[in-house]
Design a binder for these strands. Sequence first.
DNA 1: CCTCGATCCTCCAACGTTGTAATCTCGTAC
DNA 2: GTACGAGATTACAACGTTGGAGGATCGAGG
Lengths: 348, 348
Amino acid sequence: MAATLHDVAAVAGVSIKTVSNVVNDYEHIRPSTREKVLKAISELDYRPNISARSLRSGRTGVIGLALPELSLSYFAELADSVIKEAEKRNLVVLIEQTGGGDRDKEIKLLSSPRLQLTDGLIFSPLGMDSSDVAHLNVSYPLVLLGERIFGGPVDHVTMKNVEAAKAATRHLLDRGCRRIAVIGAHEGELVGSAALRVQGYREALDAAEVPFDESLLGYVIEWHRLDGARAMREMIASGVQFDAVFGLNDTLALGAMRVLQEAGFRVPEDVSVIGFDGLDETRYSLPTLSTIDPGRDEIAATAVRVLVERIKARSEPMKGEPHEPDPFEPHQYRAEFSLQARESTAVA
Amino acid sequence: MAATLHDVAAVAGVSIKTVSNVVNDYEHIRPSTREKVLKAISELDYRPNISARSLRSGRTGVIGLALPELSLSYFAELADSVIKEAEKRNLVVLIEQTGGGDRDKEIKLLSSPRLQLTDGLIFSPLGMDSSDVAHLNVSYPLVLLGERIFGGPVDHVTMKNVEAAKAATRHLLDRGCRRIAVIGAHEGELVGSAALRVQGYREALDAAEVPFDESLLGYVIEWHRLDGARAMREMIASGVQFDAVFGLNDTLALGAMRVLQEAGFRVPEDVSVIGFDGLDETRYSLPTLSTIDPGRDEIAATAVRVLVERIKARSEPMKGEPHEPDPFEPHQYRAEFSLQARESTAVA
DNA sequence: CCTCGATCCTCCAACGTTGTAATCTCGTAC
DNA sequence: GTACGAGATTACAACGTTGGAGGATCGAGG
């Protein structure tokens, strides 16, 4: 059905390899020949067969992106960024969902044959932790996102969680808040975004010499709006006094803000609220939600760039000293964050 | 590096084809042989090379999903559903973003070599219209989503736009509203979700013998929150009287609701608001937003099912009368919708 | 003991592409 | 007029898999 190199070669009156050379922009081709071939190509509407190319050359032009769930806005916006970035490099993105923190599913994915036709993987785990670091020793290029695993044997693109959470907390302190509730802590967690952001929160308190109060931590299991709402409700019911809420992500903050307003608190007059993630929708809530933009576009751009470098490095003949098995050590990249002050933390 | 059929065959002491047969569940294999082979497979950690398989057999196990943008919540949730559905059938999903209604990009995508390693495509256009129907004559299985093109030469999964919009409007009428503003109409549009939903709106008005007032239509270009906010602001500024707002999608409705509250209208006491799409976040806005769930999961499930049937049909030997070139005519499927009544349309 | 059919397995040839190495074709220099 | 070499093209062999056709094996029946 579809035209092949053979057909094009026959029409153009050259060898099949010459056509291949034209398609691949080989430099030593007589202009007249190139023209003939290009004409035949468009005439037959020839398109290279990617399976065959991939079989022969080992490259597919597809990168994998594994993330928990697209229905979580943060990951949807991240995927959007990654796809746009990949498109600039003429790569196509295959998305795998690992579910909301399903450790086994994440580990299984890393060795799934489903990744076969992928040149490399950008992986954002939510369930694995540093004890699973060995699973990251895979045979394909891998770039890690997120805060679950540090010091692994792979490149890692992450955000400045501690610093950013500290900045968010300081923002509230600057506005005179002294009893800052945290919504979204994970009970007993030592790694991961929640732990890091709580750490930044505590550092900011310490720096301002504001005492830390355990009862201001609202625990949740997942980071959905519902969880934020529930934690906020519990905290209100517990009778703890607070004058600000730091949602460890925007979704939690929006859920919490909803409950606050329902309970009669005015935002920001009675309680200031800040989130984290820089979601688009924080611009349109009532009131608009102050938040931390963790540098999502930069994260996506860096992840794709690094992955592409790794993919290139593995197929190119090793330049320079060949005794180094891998020319680059795994590297950690940290995107810049920025604080978006909006109505939810405005001073009256 | 990676083990091939050859390696496995050598270890198991059988021919390469026998290994292939085991992998593909061929029935006539002696249990002892199968066991030997399986042992060798797990010993060598063999995984089939999908490129080679695809080159030989023509199937890749990948389906494409082309949609405008993942940062639009509706499409993110749709993608989530499609991926989950595909996973049940052991298929992997490759996502292409065509941008918010970029007609040329959509047309270009349909013949992009990027789809080469895809067995078929689920396509949700936003810029093309019925005049582009010819472009849908592609050589691969294609399932169309959305409301832009009807009567095309391909299977089409859609929602009951008119009926659902009519139900939403009737819901408002039932609550005593008589001046129902519409946010999100597209100027001069004849096809597409906006037109259909406006049609449903008018039908409901007619049925209730409520006069239609052109000045109650709020026009927008895109369906982002910002557009909903802007259109609402314009309508308020214009001085038109209204007692309800029908956002043609949830995002518009949320943007509009934000502006209403800012302007001092109470929802639902002064103005009732309803949206369309059944987004997760409508459950958590303040007030919670009434909406239409257009049956997204059903749409995703149907689209994947139909696509898989088409893919199967094209490779299987034609059963029965072979004079029919295509055993099925293109079919249109319409998912059931449901109305979710929430606080934004509650009666005082 | 031979035949026959069912079951099990193997051989061979593709699928469409690209890397390597070899060949051909010039224009240029002597 | 011949030799040279760079530029331009080609032949051939893979890449790992599966379809098809044919070969081996085995038990049962004659």
